[in-house]
């Protein structure tokens, strides 16, 4: 299954949740943010090289370098220019064939680089922040996903401090809402490359991520 982690706005926690879900589902995380990648990278070919036809998808997958298998994305403007986003289709399917489930960290915005992962994905998770204005962004992402045929598995209300309006999100978006409470440890998931579902599985944040992962597993069986 190819799962897209999306959400119209930047900074709501798509990349963090991608790593967490990748760890919870034992999936391969693909950083599809071609313009502003933020998942850890390192020496070797990356998604820019793959989409420019310079590398095979599988040789760009980092295995055993961290808690999750990761296909990182390059940081350079030249790489972003050379990358052909339509090649993402075949790339994601090749990774899925070789490694099983794929979690795609989508970029913010409404351009083709955000749309193509949704067009390829079997399902998606929309990440929103708990503020009321975030609902509009979540609705737009949901509409885009609907048009591109990616079923919405769950809405993640990320970094919630007080009780967020879960019901409002559920009613408007038509999918179960899961609240991930604010937790400094989950804020360090990317920086330390250490997902809380592994390092602190008993925390409320980790349990919320596992709830989302379970919903994804159920959607997969259907």
């Amino acid at each position: 299954m190819i799962l897209a982690v999306t959400g119209g706005k930047g900074g709501v926690g798509k990349s963090t949740l991608s790593i967490e879900l990748g760890a919870a589902l034992d999936a391969t995380v693909v950083d599809a943010d071609l313009g502003m990648a933020d998942l850890p990278t390192g020496p070797g070919p990356d998604l820019h090289d793959v989409l420019a036809g310079r590398a095979d998808p599988l040789e760009a997958v980092r295995e055993g370098c961290g808690p999750v298998r990761l296909l990182p994305c390059g940081r350079s403007l030249a790489g972003a220019r050379a990358a052909d986003v339509t090649a993402l289709d075949e790339t994601l399917r090749a990774v899925e064939r070789a490694y099983g489930d794929v979690v795609v960290d989508c970029p913010a915005g409404m351009k083709a680089d955000a749309g193509v992962p949704l067009a390829v994905a079997d399902a998606c998770v929309v990440v929103a922040s708990p503020q009321s204005y975030a609902l509009a962004d979540a609705v737009r992402s949901r509409e885009l996903a609907r048009e591109l045929d990616a079923g919405l598995v769950a809405v993640v209300i990320n970094r919630a401090v007080d009780d967020p309006p879960e019901r409002a999100f559920e009613e408007v978006l038509g999918a179960p809402a899961v609240t991930v409470p604010a937790d400094p440890r989950i804020g360090e998931t990317i920086e330390a490359f250490r997902p809380v579902v592994r390092s602190a599985p008993s925390t409320r944040a980790a349990r919320a991520v596992v709830t989302v992962a379970d919903a994804v597993q159920r959607a997969k069986r259907v």
């Binding site: 289709d89 970029p107 083709a112 680089d113 193509v116 067009a119 045929d149």
Partner: peptide, 23 residues
């Protein structure tokens, strides 16, 4: 088919590639 969905996504949404002459 799936391929059409990807192309139509690019067609309707537009590519987000950085402009060639920015730098």
């Amino acid at each position: 088919d799936e391929r059409d969905l990807v192309s139509s996504a690019v067609r309707t949404l537009g590519r987000a590639t950085p402009p060639a002459d920015a730098v």
